[in-house]
Design a protein around this nucleic acid. Structure first.
Lengths: 153, 153
DNA sequence: GTTTCATGTAACTTATACTGTTACTTGATC
DNA sequence: GATCAAGTAACAGTATAAGTTACATGAAAC
């Protein structure tokens, strides 16, 4: 299965937007993702509709967060993206006549639903501010590592 | 994401094979799945290599189970199919330079791994005999329902 | 008010993986 | 040897994410 990376990409650019503080253009965000500005606009359109971000045209335009990082969960972003499927497996038929297939669907469906609920629940409990805090930790860590490096030179 | 239904299909035919007791041809199994015999052979090839089923050519040939239903778990079947991805989401880059992306990958990766472990663990605990028992329950239930129907006529 | 800049969107192409189909080979049974 | 069924290669179909081009819309700068 080819994996959907829109959630990953979107979280990435949202954190960059927060870090910047000023509007960022689709072109700048596309550079962060090594992709095309149109891909960014297309993906962000759902977030705009969901009220997570705002967009402005013309000079000084671009994308800005509409809420604080603390007020946006991964679940909010996932839903804004159209709530794409989390589980890569599916049934052969959703409404089978065959009793064997009904038994298979029941067993797999229960397992899928449980895993999906686990992921969705976790998404709802993680805020963008949590990711930003982890980024800061990594940033400080890198600074310490580089400082040691500099001393060694 | 288009969902992978090979696990679902394979469990379906394995139960039909167990129910039959005698070898079933790819053509017969394909009829159960409303698909093509070649699709069946292709999918079952992994199970043969894994020692879950045997195949015979010529007259009286076809597919048979190589183990009892109690000795095959959903996990066995999933691995025999090449262990396709369970989670439909992925990272944009597996080894990002960007610290922001590293933080995103860490958060998502942990969530993905947890959900994947939940599903895989569950697959390892469910045996084909469990599905067969559920099928029998459904079969009896339908017989009771149909009996009541007959009385009403 | 015209130019410039940036979003909004449609349309098309590409990439990828499952699925379906045809054609042919291999091997076992009658 | 004829028939049957698996084994397999090769190719077409389908769906979706992703990338690209082109153009319209609207806001700010000059």
């Amino acid at each position: 299965m080819k994996r959907d990376s829109r959630l990953s990409a979107t979280l990435h650019v949202l954190l960059h937007m927060a870090d910047r503080g000023a509007p960022m253009t689709s072109e700048e965000l596309a550079a962060c993702l090594h992709t095309n500005p149109v891909v960014v606009r297309r993906t962000m359109a759902g977030l705009r509709r969901a009220g997570l971000v705002r967009s402005g045209k013309g000079h000084g335009g671009g994308w800005t967060l509409a809420r604080a990082l603390e007020a946006i969960t991964l679940g909010d972003v996932h839903r804004a993206l159209g709530e794409p499927a989390l589980i890569a497996l599916g049934h052969r038929s959703e409404t089978p006549q065959c009793l064997v297939e009904q038994a298979v669907n029941a067993a797999l469906g229960e397992a899928f639903a449980e895993a999906e609920a686990l992921l969705a629940g976790r998404f709802d409990r993680v805020r963008l501010s949590d990711l930003a805090a982890d980024f800061s930790r990594r940033f400080d860590e890198r600074r310490r590592t580089h400082a040691r490096h500099d001393h060694a030179l």
